[in-house]
Write a protein that binds this DNA or RNA. Structure first.
Lengths: 159, 159
DNA sequence: CTGAGTGCAAAGCGTTTGCATGTGC
DNA sequence: GCACATGCAAACGCTTTGCACTCAG
């Protein structure tokens, strides 16, 4: 954890950006809540616990900066809010998301599911892939159990 | 074309929605510009040519209705605007998109690239997939030729 | 010391909503 | 005729920006 914070600090320094307490607090929040998919507002509220005087605009500016530096990914699940997701260290590709339409929970998939598909797009369409976004919408395990007793069966038959 | 319009009209009728000139004009625009990925504003401007008195709010309401009826898909490429894409008739799945980061052009891929991936998500994660969104960001063929003479070579080596 | 960074409030922008009016069925 | 649909303008929510002030390097 501290290790990753140091890396990010170093990256900021390398790019001639100043290391302000606000920026450090924001990065700390992102590291602590890595599993979540926080909106700017979420981050703002959490950072305020550490640094009460911080402004929402600064959080936006910091998140934009971190996006430019490719330290976080800005993602959008179609609900009108941008969410910010720390990039996994050493990850060659973006992770994918499973968004539950029942409870709104978001799971992450680390596996590289798209290697073949990207090769196809590159060879058959002549499109150089730089980045991708893959999100599945559906029903998570927990909600299946909650709302529907025969979902297990459904799951096996589905598609 | 007329055939698809009739189908949509019938669908509206079946669901007890009124067939107003505004709704018909909006659907016509979507049919005519099927290949584009129009924003609500885009649709509004095009519909206004056919029905000058229409209001932007009506366009939004119509697009929302068509989304509910699964006649169009609301998509979001992360630029802060919702775009509306007519569903292909008889398509079992959503098409995917190639967004060029150079010129902003959007190509569509009809092939079902995700069958295997969805099966994996369903069996290994117990997540019932209802829908997906897949977008690749990168450089389209045209821009490759324009900005970079050795892109052809790059493309073959890439990844 | 100096310019990058900040907080605040105001503005921007896409989208939604309240309400009086209009119109398909 | 009547409920649904529309047009307009105001409201909304997220995000960006202008500006004077602050502080990291």
């Amino acid at each position: 954890m501290e290790h990753r914070l140091d890396r990010i600090k170093k990256e900021l320094h390398t790019q001639r950006y100043k290391l302000t307490p606000q920026r450090e607090a924001t990065v700390r929040v992102l590291l602590e809540r890595e599993e979540d998919h926080l909106s700017a507002e979420d981050v703002y509220l959490l950072v305020r616990d550490k640094a009460p005087e911080i402004g929402l605009a600064t959080v936006y500016r910091t998140l934009e900066l971190l996006t430019e530096l490719e330290i976080v990914d800005k993602i959008n699940f179609g609900d009108g809010v941008s969410r910010y997701d720390l990039r996994k260290e050493g990850a060659k590709h973006f992770h994918h998301h499973l968004v539950c339409t029942e409870c709104g929970s978001v799971e992450e998939i680390e596996d590289d599911l798209l290697e073949e598909v990207e090769n196809f797009v590159q060879s058959d369409w002549g499109f150089i892939v730089k980045d991708h976004r893959l999100t599945f919408h559906g029903i998570c395990k927990k909600c299946q159990d909650r709302i529907c007793s025969n979902c297990e069966a459904k799951r096996l038959v589905a598609r």
